[in-house]
Amino acid sequence: MASSISLWVFLYVFWFLLSGHTEPLLLGFGAISCAVVVFIAYRMDVIDHEGHPSHLSFRIIPYWVWLCIEIVKSNIDVAKVILSPKLNISPVMFKTKANQSRELGQVIYANSITLTPGTVTLGLEDGILEIHALTIEGAKGVLSGEMDRRVCKVKGKMEGHNE
């Protein structure tokens, strides 16, 4: 029930931001359509703890700031490689271990690696990531394990809180 109400509030805020109308009639219609969507989601049995994401915390925001800086750096590296006349790529494939204890942390780590240009995650099974990197420098950047440590730090608190 708490998840349903939280989903409704989230949907209503989203509806308001998209429409921008403030007439009482339209606000009422918005409330009714959000309620219908919540009812359909309830019937489909897709309302779970992710509808009320209390397991995410604001500690992820400093991580996002750091990730954005990393994305800028690696973008400039990849742009240099593409624009170099001889196209000096050295593609490399390797496996590395994700040290996060739960799936959410591992998914955040894998998505962060894919989001940074120059490295892309090919597979994630049992905490072992398979990575394709455009240059050997990019591969060394992942293997230095700084991103892994930072994701562990972000997730450490949340996982402790959840269990």
Partner: peptide, 16 residues
Amino acid sequence: KPLAEDGSNLEGAYKE
């Protein structure tokens, strides 16, 4: 088949 070298000898890479 990816056009890539095997990087399992790099420092810190996970080995089977």
